[in-house]
Nucleic acid binder design. Sequence first.
DNA 1: AAAGGGCTCAACCGCTCGCTT
DNA 2: TAAGCGAGCGGTTGAGCCCTT
Length: 288
Amino acid sequence: MGRAPCCDKANVKKGPWSPEEDAKLKAYIEENGTGGNWIALPQKIGLKRCGKSCRLRWLNYLRPNIKHGGFSEEEDDIICSLYINIGSRWSIIAAQLPGRTDNDIKNYWNTSLKKKLLSKQQKEEQARRASWFSVKQEMKRETEEYWPQQQPPLMPLTSTSTAIPHSMNSPHPYGFSYVEAHPFSVLSPAFSISPINNTYSQVGAPFQGLAGFPGELIYSNNQQIFDGMEGFYGTDNMVVGSSSSAESSSWGDIYSLGFPQIVSGFEACQQSTPQVSTYDEQHCTWAA
DNA sequence: AAAGGGCTCAACCGCTCGCTT
DNA sequence: TAAGCGAGCGGTTGAGCCCTT
């Protein structure tokens, strides 16, 4: 058996509110308050409306000090920042913006702000890729110059690799990880370079690099990959590895603009059994 | 001037949460 | 403890407006 309806649907008016209805509702609430019972309220004032509809009308339109439209740059920044950190929790976001309703912010985000943010991120990502490309070339040069012949073939520096900045709580907060984006099903090795200390390490046994070559060698398990993204987007709430909710798919939309290979790769990775590459010292090769 | 496609935003729907009995 | 109920929330819809052709 389904849930009982909150009101008699047959005798309830729907659609836009008339000025008379607005006036009745506003006058009553200003004089008596809601009484903590929205369901009973329309009957008390003779409105053929659902209690939920009255509540919505009051909260989103009739309530004093409501601001409509004309969002400022500062408000945009607050909304974007909160959305990135907590997702579509509109009521929480609205609580940070006096005079704004959750419905208003939700509409504004869906119609304007999302597009604005995404285009901004695309531009920033283009600029970032351009600057990281030169760093990658420098790394390749240094690798070829310093790395001894007998060492493992550490990092296939190819056109598909991607650089990701570290988070502030990373051991090397000002460095970045270098991730081979494809294929993700075979977890590819990755570099993580730090200007802070000049040592190499790797997941599993420590790896002794050459003195003076700054960085560390890691393998791209999920944690390492998303360590960089976490710092980049300023969130520590992101649950990596859980993509079943609608919320996380919207996160994917945002993230994919910044790191399209990583998001698509991560999704592919989730669907496959993770494999860890190991180095065969005898044959000087990596094997999955 | 008219058509139609896109956009905005008020309102609805259905779900979850928390309180009460 | 479980069921019932209302409040609150986020997703979605659709009427009306605006802009382009």
